[in-house]
Write a protein that binds this DNA or RNA. Structure first.
Length: 258
DNA sequence: ATGCCTCAGCTCCTGAGA
């Protein structure tokens, strides 16, 4: 079983790249973020022809998430139950015995701002919900654009970016609090090259100079961890013409299911 | 360097992203 997450920064623009990528990387489940489209525009047919059924949760202009799957997805839930939110950020479903959660975490813009406070509230709500979700579904995977780095190893210039958005202690505290629920950063379960990032600024040759951040993550629960056989970032789509600023992250599960 | 790209939309500028 293979899983992946990708912030596509507009599915309208990136659909051909997503289809090409799926052809080369026929993962079982792909969660997408930043669709930037309403559900009536979602390309169900194109994904269907590629062998994927899809559940989407979109909105106009911003945000928007989806889950594509080669296997039946059930118990689909949108956003964080009990947390009132106007923005489309989370989609969850059971696929092949795994509770899969795809999320587009708030950006936060700037520490101390109203959007930062929203990000912190959202993170706390996510944590409280996940604590219960893990009881209901011990085999759980949380993946998406977290908009948070774990530590300096995830940051191209930790000195210049000290305590800036995605790198603050407050955000990292919440990320560690998710880990403390019994989750694991799948990427770090395996040896990785230095300066491994999942996002690069469009400006100033960010990708060419590998000035990036690792902010897209796949977390796996205790029960799932023993089955994880690989996790890596695929940088190749960042070399496309008109690329997303994010690269996909993939995970392989050594399991007989389904 | 409160910027350098890119995207959507109340589209030829602005807000947001990260």
């Amino acid at each position: 079983m293979k899983f992946a997450t990708w912030n596509v920064n507009s599915l309208g623009v990136r659909l051909p790249q997503v289809l090409a990528w799926l052809q080369a990387n026929p993962v079982d489940v792909l969660v997408l973020q930043e669709l930037k489209m309403t559900d009536d525009k979602f390309p169900f047919d194109a994904f269907g022809q590629a062998g994927y059924s899809a559940h989407c949760f979109g909105q106009k202009t911003y945000n928007g998430v989806a889950m594509l799957s080669r296997h039946p997805a059930s118990n689909v839930v949108r956003n964080i139950p009990g947390f009132a939110d106007d923005l489309a950020r989370v989609i969850s479903a059971d696929v092949a015995g795994v509770r899969v959660i795809g999320g587009y975490f708030p950006n936060g813009q700037e520490p101390g701002s109203e959007k930062f406070e929203y990000k912190m509230s959202w993170l706390r709500a996510l944590r409280h919900w996940l604590r219960e979700e893990l009881v209901r579904s011990p085999k759980l995977m949380l993946m998406g654009d977290f908009n948070i780095t774990f530590d300096d190893a995830d940051v191209w210039d930790p000195v210049a970016l000290y305590e800036t958005i995605h790198c603050t202690e407050q955000e990292r505290y919440e990320l560690r609090a998710l880990i403390a629920l019994g989750l694991h950063d799948a990427f770090r379960l395996f040896a990785q090259g230095p300066k491994s990032y999942s996002w690069w600024d469009y400006r100033d040759g960010g990708f060419r100079r590998n000035r990036g951040l690792r902010i897209d993550h796949i977390l796996v629960s205790d029960a799932l961890k023993p089955a994880v056989s690989n996790c890596f970032i695929d940088r190749s789509p960042r070399r496309n013409e008109r690329p997303s600023d994010h690269a996909p992250v993939l995970l392989e599960l050594a399991t007989a299911e389904p």
